[in-house]
């Protein structure tokens, strides 16, 4: 009911638009084509699950979508901006202001409190100390970690660490949240908690989510599932359209 708003008639701009994206690693005979012409459009408010066996190109695609990498050929427009034309620093600024990342291995800073971990992206945005604390506490509240701000990652469980990582990704209120196997290291009960958190972020905060997962159960939470195979999208179907 929130994202099924294609009924108002106006043409919606895709937030992420890949057309004919190819990515080749190496050169000559050693060249390896990871993506072989991928077309993908993701609209604001979608929750997309990206699936596929390893080596299918889904990670490469996610790196390009996350502006960490650029296509060898083809076009990737983020909010209408051609990412391939940007410099390394410009892409960093794009990530800083519009993207949130949740990594598979959490990638939290060791021996640094949860609150400071969450504040990290705000530091690079130049947010003042006071509003940094405030925004970080809000993000902690959203992920249900109030009261844990002074614990370091070593003192938190896996599920809690992933919540900190999610709080760090959403504290800047990004347009798109990119999650790489966010439940990969968690048991099923924790996985369900994390997926419910992501679903609520998607539904209540309107954050577009692109999530890589191996588990069909987890993909169930998304509104759309994209399957990769051999560097191409094999299936792409929406579900829960009118949930």
């Amino acid at each position: 009911m929130i994202n099924g708003t294609n009924s108002n008639g106006t043409e919606r701009q895709p937030i992420i638009e890949l057309s004919g994206v190819r990515k080749v690693y190496g050169s000559g005979t050693a060249a390896m084509e990871a993506l072989r012409g991928v077309d993908l459009r993701i609209y604001p408010g979608e929750f997309v699950a990206v699936m596929g066996p390893s080596g299918s190109g889904k990670s490469t695609c996610m790196n390009i979508v996350g502006c960490l990498d650029t296509p060898t050929s083809g076009a990737y427009r983020f909010c209408g901006v051609e990412v391939g034309d940007l410099t390394r620093n410009q892409r960093a600024l794009l990530r800083r202001h519009y993207l949130g990342f949740v990594f598979q291995g959490y990638n939290l800073l060791n021996r640094t409190s949860a609150l400071e971990n969450i504040e990290l992206p705000l530091i690079y945005r130049g947010v003042t100390v006071r509003s940094r604390h405030q925004q970080a506490r809000q993000a902690m509240e959203v992920v249900g970690l109030t009261g844990w701000q002074h614990h370091t990652p070593g003192e938190l469980s896996g599920g809690q660490q992933q919540r900190v990582a999610i709080a760090r990704a959403i504290v800047t209120q990004p347009l798109v949240l990119l999650a790489d196997e966010p439940t990969g290291n968690l048991d099923s009960a924790r996985s369900i908690e994390i997926m419910e958190l992501l679903t609520s972020l998607n539904e209540n905060q309107g954050i577009t989510i692109v999530m890589v997962t191996h588990e069909p159960d987890m993909a169930e939470y998304a509104t759309r599932t994209v399957h990769f195979k051999d560097g191409l999208i094999s299936t792409d179907h929406s579900h829960k359209e009118n949930a």
Binding site: L68, N89, A92, L94, G100, N107, L120, Y124, R168
Partner: peptide, 16 residues
């Protein structure tokens, strides 16, 4: 290295 990767990914500039 991982910390640096994380910082770069979340938008730290090279010079930072």
């Amino acid at each position: 290295t991982r910390e640096i990767g994380t910082r770069l990914a979340i938008g730290a500039l090279e010079r930072e």
